[in-house]
């Protein structure tokens, strides 16, 4: 009993800080999501609205479209980063001269502030003095203008996210692959398994916890992307890159529609938690299987 108290004591500061800084604001957001509260409204007052904000939400096709785009963006970004990161990590397993330099340069984007990443990519892609439109036009005769073409803008944000976050995946994969015991693989090769079989039946299952964790972390962050895209396209052209983070930002700040914006946030949080919980359960299952086998 006494030792349990020590355990709680050690946990307490974390719980208190997150309770005050995380749970309290969450409860407040939950509270105002049941109110109509808009600085610009005729009454200007906070008025009880029941579940009206949520009712409005499920019929708001612009918002649901934005949610769909965000999910697509997250899916594509996380998958590409995972595959790329895994491939790159496996090339880094053996030593070759200059490996450290390459790896360090590869990790550079990781430390750049999202808002600066957005600025960097804007400078790269802005028509007029951006590098990309100029040389794409000159060398390949491609009309590249992310202010104008929705698909180009979408894939540019995707490329930006991959550029920014693949290093993170590479590093976690590399850490996982390095820490993995080598004997089973060598044994399997001796037993006549080919490269693909080793990868499919040994490496990937053993890497599963790392993979799931990485997906988990990347998914959380990709779903709430704001800064980079806001700097790059502002959410345009049209609605093409108006991901939920930006959408909510627009509702909460310029429109000051606090109640509705809170409802939106909660819905996004709900989706994220459900997705995360499923992954979490999957991770626990993988863990149980491994420990039991």
């Amino acid at each position: 009993m006494d030792s349990n108290r020590t355990g709680w004591g050690l946990l307490a500061p974390t719980l208190i800080i997150l309770g005050v800084m995380g749970l309290l604001p969450f409860l407040y957001v939950l509270y105002i999501s049941f109110f109509d509260w808009n600085v610009f409204s005729a009454s200007g007052q906070m008025e009880w609205a029941g579940v009206n904000n949520f009712r409005r939400l499920v019929f708001d096709s612009a918002f649901l479209g934005s949610l769909g785009r965000t999910l697509l963006f997250t899916l594509l970004a996380v998958t590409s980063e995972l595959i790329l990161g895994f491939l790159l990590a496996s090339t880094l397993l053996r030593d070759f001269p200059g490996k450290i330099v390459f790896r360090t340069i590869h990790a550079l984007p990781l430390v750049i502030a999202p808002i600066a990443v957005g600025a960097t990519w804007r400078l790269l892609t802005i028509p007029g003095f951006g590098l990309a439109p100029y040389y794409l036009d000159r060398w390949f005769d491609i009309d590249y203008n992310i202010g104008r073409y929705a698909e180009q803008a979408f894939f540019t944000t995707l490329a930006m996210d991959i550029w920014h976050w693949t290093p993170f995946v590479t590093l976690t994969m590399l850490a996982g692959l390095t820490a993995m015991p080598k004997e089973p693989q060598e044994q399997a090769r001796v037993d006549g398994a080919n490269r693909w079989q080793v990868l499919r039946f040994l490496t990937i299952p053993m890497m599963m916890p790392v993979i799931v964790t990485t997906v988990f972390i990347r998914m959380m962050d990709a779903l709430r992307i704001v800064d980079e895209v806001f700097m790059l396209t502002g959410g345009g052209p049209g609605n093409a890159t108006r991901y939920v983070g930006i959408y909510i930002w627009r509702v909460v700040f310029p429109q000051t529609d606090y109640g509705y914006g809170s409802a939106m946030s909660l819905l996004v949080l709900y989706f994220t938690i459900v997705l995360a919980w499923l992954l979490f359960v999957a991770l626990a299952q993988v863990g149980n299987q491994q420990s039991s086998s």
Binding site: I126, P127, G128, N145, G147, R148, P237
Partner: peptide, 11 residues
């Protein structure tokens, strides 16, 4: 100019 669709009052 091509930057028109990326131009606010600043640009």
């Amino acid at each position: 100019p091509p930057e028109a669709t990326s131009s606010t009052w600043d640009e």
